[in-house]
Nucleic acid binder design. Structure first.
Lengths: 344, 344
DNA sequence: GAGGTTGATGAAACTAGTTACATATGTCAA
DNA sequence: TTGACATATGTAACTAGTTTCATCAACCTC
């Protein structure tokens, strides 16, 4: 006898409620989904049974019928950089307007990890994916190809990408920054950037700089994308025999780290060296001096990606890529390089 | 060219695969779950059918049988404060070790929003919840009571809470900070804190300060928890006729904002005023001067919360509360207040 | 009073998997 | 040669909902 232990009351289901209320399962289902069509007395009877049995409909059983799980996944390199946190915040905010929840998974910029986590998300029923950048593992492409799950690339704009991309042109953004420094008369520029390996955004930004074919001197320093990384990179730059006129950081976190690094070396920004970032984090506006940067519209990107993905899921129509403009934000960390005869 | 995918023939299911491979559904299920017991030829036949039909098992159908959806939800006030981003990163990392995904939802510190989003998470099948702080809406408590979903409170330690709490003692953390400033001889302290409304962590920190019954002078300034909020609070403090010896910020982001605010007012830290934070974000270690703070073990908290929740879900045994210690990190933004006769 | 319409409800089929149990075949020992 | 057992597979019941279709009573119309 599989006798039911009354203390081990396992979760009540729709049949239990129907029995308790003395109605059919169809009626209980109606009470849940279209209470308007149920007679008042019946409605109350059923609602009482639902309350008594503490009945909570099973999400899985609903999903099996509707074919909808109502959540999507986002794969970002890290949460530690505020740029992704801001993007995700906007993404989540907009998705919830369409009744979609967001599962966040971090990849640590590792393509294997990304493929693995994507598999996990699909396995648990994600209806769509938001990914970062254009480079992905073969297994990842396989997975998407097999499942045909709506997938949108962000932080990258490229019409020829197999996935719809919603993002900015990383090359152009970096060029915008460099052109500004050039316009200010700087000739020797140190570029501080994050790891190039597996990061096509950084790669695109760097190649954008080189494609300008500028005749000034560019030296590059690779470091971790973090405040500490910026501070460390500064040490390397400061120890050189030839000092740069300007330092261009391809991420704002790094720029702030460099600012701190320069300050602890007693080097004044912008008097002794101009400093520029790229991202436009809130910290850049508030820092002293405030940091000139290129604004990347990550909140807009989150919103647009959410809208596009939600629509893709509901209409089955693949969205068009969207290019978002990055623009220059001039602040106090950059000044015109004084010509030789302007000095004392 | 937003046109309908021509391959819209609805997804193949297990029955389709069984038919295509000429076997029963049970055999297909075995191929998926225990391929070892299936004869090699059959296995290959079925795998070919799976590949041909691009069959992907339905997560919902699996969930309905196993009763498991393999994801949990976390409700945090915001992603914009790195303290939560760091916590979530650790939480997600550890959960994925137990095969659990994490849905992140932000509440903007609004209890109604929290209750609503919690409902959404339960509706889509979350197996557990991680929440922030001890104060929640009545509907939220109702929901948890009805569903009996494993729920853990973080960022707060309190043995008498209806939910198991895994966190630090906010009162003690704030007291640790204040005691340090007192020990350094400061007598007039400005305390900058985030919104008190609906934020029991801030409330606890403030009441911790008052409960010390110190005979020095404490003035408080409420502001938004952000860099900008810190900068704004600074303006208010600087405009006072009586200047404080030290400024204690109950969040590190705010402390950095205050540092910037002081710098732009030409006030030197720590020479003219000592500055202290609470959280210990990476920025506090790298800032110039580096900011003295109280370290809150948020990564450990994420890990412990993940472990406890995963265990609760699998064993049905409610975990014990865990108190994590906060400790003082002395850096360069605080110095001993010089006695009157030390001057000049 | 027959026929039509509306409203409320129920029986059973349906979603897409897993799994308990039954069955068929093959191997080996008695 | 037969029973015992393992191996491989199939049948059908099961998970927990939604939905279609049928039923029946009440009311209205002609």
């Amino acid at each position: 006898m599989t006798q039911k232990d009354p203390t081990l009351k396992k979760r009540a289901n729709l049949r239990d409620v129907a029995k308790a209320a003395g109605v059919s399962v169809a009626t209980v289902s109606r009470v849940l989904n279209e209470p308007g069509v149920v007679k008042k007395e019946t409605l109350e009877k059923v609602q009482k049974a639902i309350a008594d049995l503490r009945f909570v409909p099973s999400a899985a059983a609903r999903a099996i019928n509707s074919g909808r799980t109502r959540f999507v996944g986002a794969l970002v390199p890290t949460l530690d950089n505020a740029i992704f946190a801001r993007f995700l915040a906007a993404l989540e905010r907009r998705l919830s307007q369409d009744g979609l929840s967001l599962i966040v998974a971090t990849t640590e910029s590792d393509l294997e990890v990304e493929a693995e986590k994507a598999k996990g998300l699909v396995d648990i029923g994600a209806e769509g994916l938001i990914i970062t950048g254009a480079t992905h593992a073969a297994e990842f492409h396989d997975l998407i190809e097999r499942t045909r799950i709506p997938t949108i690339v962000t932080s990258y704009f490229d019409v020829s990408n197999p996935f719809p991309t919603i993002g900015y042109d990383n090359k152009a953004a970096a060029q915008l920054a460099l052109r500004h420094l050039i316009k200010l008369g700087h000739r020797r520029i140190a570029v501080v950037h994050g790891p190039v390996h597996n990061n096509d955004r950084t790669q695109a930004r760097l190649s954008g700089l080189h494609e300008l074919n500028w005749d000034g001197e560019i030296t590059t320093v690779e470091t971790e994308i973090s405040l500490r990384g910026g501070a460390e990179a500064t040490a390397r730059i400061v120890n050189r025999s030839v000092k740069p006129d300007a330092i261009l950081c391809l991420s704002d976190v790094v720029a702030l780290g460099v600012l701190f690094g320069l300050q602890s070396n007693g080097i004044s920004v912008p008097d002794e060296v101009s400093l520029m970032g790229l991202d436009d984090l809130p910290s850049s506006a508030v820092a002293v001096p405030s940091i000139t940067t290129v604004h990347l519209p990550v909140s807009t990107m989150g919103e647009r990606a959410a809208i596009a993905l939600a629509r893709w899921i509901s209409t089955q129509e693949r969205p068009e890529p969207e290019r978002l403009e990055a623009d220059l934000v001039e602040r106090s960390s950059t000044i015109r390089k004084r010509a030789f005869d302007e000095y004392g």
